[in-house]
Design a protein around this nucleic acid. Structure first.
Lengths: 173, 173
DNA sequence: AATTTTTAGTTGCGTTATGAAACTATTGGT
DNA sequence: ACCAATAGTTTCATAACGCAACTAAAAATT
């Protein structure tokens, strides 16, 4: 029984989970944002076995989140850096850190503070907002079938608007 | 060799990864936000084996992300719902979905659209911002030791400010 | 009221992934 | 030329996964 994959699912979160959804990949990405670049620096920083690290670096490269490139010019040694796609995880990583800061460590007890280099002050807490800037909770939104919805349910943006008026597919908590 | 845990690490991301850092937990949380509540609904929705689902629901309860409660009043059957701590993952889940929408499916091809119930329009893309509202990239921030930094490096907010002026511990990408 | 179906799990077992240590090969420093 | 560090790969015991079969209680159906 080969291990189950989520890759075939037409779902953003399934795809995200497949790309970075294990604890080692998450720690490697965190380290990459932190500025860690070399194999042994990753290994030392997160205490991962070298064979597993090797595997995960390969996985993250295949998903175009990390890229392996020669260190400096003309060196045959290499380093791992975030791609554009990887750097785009910035809001995800920040939101996750803020969540743990608040809900695991408690406010004012976070081991690491993320600071804006210009103002030298902690960054703003990420919030979900409507197009016009109202702060939203889970009760204020719904999930609707999008233009890339699977198979026969494919629809245009206009059709999504229509489906929203007549119930949509989302749910209230 | 027991499986390695990140629980002892004094790091927000390690704690977050330990709590929700595997693909099944992520999918269960996504489903919970979507409104899924019962054991079999989770199983059908994400195609997970029942023994693994059982384990993960237990894990998420232990981390106070999900709570098990009787369905309706006086019923002996139960359902799983997000706790306050679980609901606080809202920005994380939204940021992750937006990332995959853009970088895996491509804009305008997302299978699911998250819509503001009031305006009936897609929600705003989450961004990292400074305290005064400037949009920040990874190059605009640094990581500094916080008040809860481990062991001997513990310091006050004032000391963090001071350490920032003299180099800090963060890095540039 | 008796029967069937659904729900919510648990148990057993073969297969896969992980983790520690040992091993290799290349590079950098002295 | 020598020694240490870097960047992995290989080996093997053990833990976790995944399927199928099983159980027990509640809900629905006859």
């Amino acid at each position: 029984m080969p291990r189950k994959s989520l890759e075939h699912l037409n779902c953003s979160w399934a795809q995200a989970a497949e790309a970075m959804g294990d604890k080692w990949s998450m720690m490697i990405i965190r380290d990459a944002f932190y500025g860690v670049k070399t194999f042994s620096a990753f290994a030392d920083s997160i205490g991962i076995s070298k064979n597993i690290l090797s595997q995960r670096l390969e996985h993250l490269q295949q998903h175009d989140i990390l890229a392996k490139r020669p260190i400096g010019t003309g060196s045959s040694r290499s380093e791992y850096v975030l791609t554009e796609k990887g750097k785009a995880l910035f809001p995800v990583i920040m939101a996750l850190g803020q969540w743990a800061d608040h809900w695991i460590f408690g406010d004012g007890k976070a081991p690491i503070v993320v600071v804006d280099l210009e103002e030298r002050k902690p960054i703003k807490t990420l919030k979900v907002e409507s197009e016009d800037g109202r702060e939203l909770t889970i009760r204020d939104i719904t999930f609707a079938a999008g233009p890339g919805a699977s198979d026969s349910t494919r629809q245009t943006v206009a059709e999504v608007e229509a489906s929203l008026k007549s119930g949509a597919i989302g749910s209230k908590l």
